[in-house]
């Protein structure tokens, strides 16, 4: 074999190896495409959920603060009125005590109702907890896809840190559409559906 033939054979071998290597690279990129596209889609979803949690927590907190402010204002008035009742009782002016007691009863009842309304508003915790579980689940999915991508890129030399994290994943049960303010079907439509099962609720 002449030196030229040798060189030609070597070049041919190099080109073959290069082609195989490029084919492998193309295949690797193809494998990476799906998980990366899915991660790309899920990141905005998780961001939206986190934004929603922030907005709805703010709204519920504000609603509760409004009620607490009213309760404390009424409590101040009750304390002041009780002072007047005591004064009148001590000085023997008992005629107005009955009317003052009625006012105090109204204020105390309103405070009790507002306290229950705060309890009602605290339902936001269950709803935002489900929204957080949804966001966490999306982030766990993204983490899984990225692990897959990194493992493919690293091949057999996958670093140790790519091993499954030691933290045990929480069992999540959530409604991905849980919302404090927007209900897809309102209570009236649900009621009419239960009253007449054959009837379809209004969309």
């Amino acid at each position: 074999m002449s030196p030229t033939d040798n060189l030609q054979a070597k070049i041919q071998q190099e080109i073959t190896e290069l082609t195989t290597s490029v084919s492998g690279l193309v295949e690797s990129f193809r494998k990476l495409q799906n998980p990366l596209a899915e991660s790309h889609r899920k990141v905005p979803q998780a961001t939206n959920q986190l934004d929603k949690i922030s907005e709805q927590t703010e709204a519920a907190t504000s609603q509760m603060l409004d009620m607490i402010e009213q309760i404390t204002q009424r409590e101040d008035e009750i304390i002041k009125d009780l002072g007047v009742v005591k004064q009148k009782a001590e000085s023997g002016e008992t005629t107005e005590i009955g009317a003052l007691a009625d006012v105090l009863t109204v204020k105390a009842t309103t405070n009790l109702n507002d306290a229950y309304a705060i309890m009602e508003a605290l339902q936001f915790q269950d709803i935002t907890a489900q929204q957080m579980d949804h966001a966490a689940s999306l982030l766990e999915d993204i983490e899984g896809k990225l692990r897959h991508v990194l493992t493919n890129v690293s091949g057999d030399e996958a670093p140790e840190k790519l091993e499954e994290p030691a933290i045990q994943k929480k069992k999540r049960a959530y409604d991905p559409h849980a919302d404090l303010f927007n209900k897809t079907t309102n209570q009236e439509d649900i009621d009419s559906l239960f009253q007449n099962p054959k009837q379809q609720p209004v969309e």
């Binding site: 229950y116 009602e120 508003a121 339902q123 936001f124 269950d126 709803i127 489900q130 409604d175 559409h177 849980a178 919302d179 404090l180 209900k183 897809t184 079907t185 309102n186 209570q187 649900i190 559906l193 239960f194 099962p197 379809q200 609720p201 969309e203």
Partner: peptide, 30 residues
């Protein structure tokens, strides 16, 4: 009593045998 307010979910619950259905958040009156 659930956050699920999608019509298909309500129908599914009905089919499963619930007697009534409330979407959270609910009022004490409801």
């Amino acid at each position: 009593v659930t956050t699920r307010s999608v019509k298909d979910d309500i129908m599914e619950a009905m089919k499963a045998g619930v007697n009534n259905y409330i979407v959270k958040p609910f009022t004490p009156e409801t």
